[in-house]
Design a protein around this nucleic acid. Structure first.
Lengths: 255, 255
DNA sequence: CATGCAAACTGAACTAGACCAAAAAACCAT
DNA sequence: ATGGTTTTTTGGTCTAGTTCAGTTTGCATG
């Protein structure tokens, strides 16, 4: 970053300012510094050591402020790679039933998908419960990482009933939407979805896939798909970088 | 906490352990320490200085580990008051249309509500857009804090159309559900809801109401209620302590 | 017995460094 | 140019403290 102004005196330690506000102010000052320099979404921030100099503070304090901005969703980090300005959130309508690529493209962004794993395994307790089967029953396991404008934002683990989708692993699972495949190749329509949403932190595998630090906060979306006969045919666990999406949903309440 | 074992040697600095794993292990060790001593939900953890002694580490490192457990939702903190073990999450079915108190009681927990503000103000840009009115139009503003088992978990700001609910401020807004009031006193049924979900951090007012540190991560739920004629009658912004809820939802997708 | 005040405790925030490993950049040889 | 190697930069993690202000608590007073 060129011509960042050097802080001659520390603007954060003026004596007429209550200490309890300094963290807040450092965050604000940092944010102003970033917006002033008109970083574009996805662009890298100056290194922590540089920022620390500019703002005349220490690394730990600086990192606290950065973490704040991260929690707000204004910036994000890639593990050992630095801090970046967050692009605008993708609006994700839970009930629209749009495949990922179409949803992203409809918002004039670019979507890509990578297949990380495609195998047949035994259903874990959790998966078995969700799909209404006995623990250990064979299931297809499909793990993918999805990007928007080149940024990894989503890590998904799918688990499908083998009896519903025989030999589905033979298809190109990176290019095509699963629900699309279900309909076209297996005549299975998703006619009901159940969601479970919560925020947690990334495990090791998911963190690696998203180039994120293990322990980064994420939005978890667990989804169970039912076919036209009400049978549970597959479930998936989606882990979204929390700053990458804004969930929407519109429906009639049951009562 | 009685009889916490003193750490004679540091279990976290054994030489055969890669440094990149120590953070993870400290978190695990800390968590084991807590579960071993069978803290009950809502119970206070030992002070940071004590834990730092037990685990033979420094305040900063310890706080990093505590923050991790906080992000996972296992523990939470109240500002300047200490760390506490998180109670189980409340299951919140977005489309069930259950009033807060009923939802909580149905899960065998105890709910309370405090009224923080009830006034008539001018609609902000955001509120006006949501309710389909001009900026500056008068609206009722109702701010409440809601607790489960004595713990403040939810801060809500409601904005209602004045023309839909004349003189609603005269009712006891802490005791009664708003949707209940709508139906009983104004013959307005909520027949459609739109949600917007995202994670952010607490502002000052919300943080104070939840006894949380400003900047704590929260789950935001914005809700717009439509009446039987499709008219938008009110909206609210809910800020939930992120470890306090698990959102669920089941519906037919639109496609 | 309740009330109010002062002391002790505790979390919040900060200082000033250090070391390591992964990533990025520079460099060199083919 | 190109591919591989070395150097530098940088984030991740840690040590060892300090200061300050809000909470809690216990003691003394009315």
């Amino acid at each position: 970053m060129p011509s960042m102004p050097a802080a001659s005196t520390n603007p954060l330690r003026s004596s007429d300012m209550p200490a309890s506000q300094q963290a807040h102010d450092l965050r604000m000052t940092l944010w102003e510094l970033l917006t002033q320099h008109a970083l574009r979404p996805g662009e890298r921030l100056p290194s922590e050591r540089q920022l620390m100099e500019y703002l005349n503070t220490t690394r730990i304090t600086l990192r606290e402020a950065l973490s704040q901005l991260e929690a707000e969703g204004r910036i994000y980090r890639e593990s050992r790679r630095g801090w970046f300005l967050s692009p605008p959130r993708l609006r994700y309508d839970l009930l629209a039933g749009l495949p990922f690529h179409e949803m992203v493209e409809s918002q004039r962004r670019h979507a890509t998908t990578e297949l990380l794993e495609a195998s047949e395994t035994a259903a874990s307790t959790t998966v078995a419960r969700r799909l209404g089967m006995a623990e250990g029953t064979p299931v297809y396991r499909i793990v993918r990482a999805r990007s928007i404008d080149g940024r990894r934002v989503l890590y998904v683990e799918h688990h499908l009933r083998v009896d519903c989708f025989p030999d589905i692993l033979a298809f190109d699972l990176a290019a095509c939407s699963l629900t699309e495949l279900y309909r076209r190749e297996y005549a299975i329509r998703v006619s009901r979805v159940s969601f479970e949403l919560g925020s947690t932190v990334l495990g090791h595998q998911a963190a690696a896939a998203l180039y994120a630090a293990p322990g980064s906060p994420v939005q978890r979306i667990t989804r169970i798909n039912h076919d036209q006969n009400g049978r549970m045919v597959d479930c998936d666990d989606e882990y979204w970088r929390h700053d990458a999406i804004e969930l929407t949903l519109s429906a009639a309440p049951q009562s």
